[in-house]
Design a protein around this nucleic acid. Structure first.
Length: 109
DNA sequence: CTGTTGACTGCTG
DNA sequence: TCAGCAGCCAACA
């Protein structure tokens, strides 16, 4: 098992986010060891469109549960995708966000 | 090689 | 409570 690039590691982690749950940039950054570099996650997710298999970037939001990256979804709206998975979006924000939040560290443990 | 940018977060005033 | 600033790391010009 060769060491993957940081980008691939983030992709793989996001793909493992369970349906009906969401995670945050900060938690992902922490899970890959970057801890304070949530911005990198955002930058990496920008490239996620070119990643294969496709990365469910719509399950990744900022720590407030706000759909900060929805503007980057060209085909389908981020909100639509989340609602299709059972999430409730109001004012670009996930309702009951804390209850739906999934910590990637729990997978690594 | 150097500087800028970015789907963020946390602290400080 | 709200607004502003600094920090973090990688990719691109």
């Amino acid at each position: 098992m060769a060491n993957k690039d940081l980008v691939d590691l983030v992709y793989d982690l996001v793909r493992k986010v369970p349906v009906g749950s969401v995670t945050t940039y900060g938690l992902i950054a922490n899970a890959v060891g970057l801890k304070s570099s949530a911005r990198l996650i955002g930058y990496i997710m920008n490239h996620a469109h070119d990643a294969y298999p496709s990365v469910p970037a719509h399950r990744v939001v900022n720590r407030n549960g706000l759909l900060t990256g929805k503007h980057h979804f060209k085909k389908s709206s981020m909100q639509t995708l989340l609602e299709a998975e059972g999430h409730v979006i109001v004012n670009d924000q996930i309702q009951d966000f804390k209850n739906k939040l999934w910590d990637p560290m729990s997978l690594l443990e």
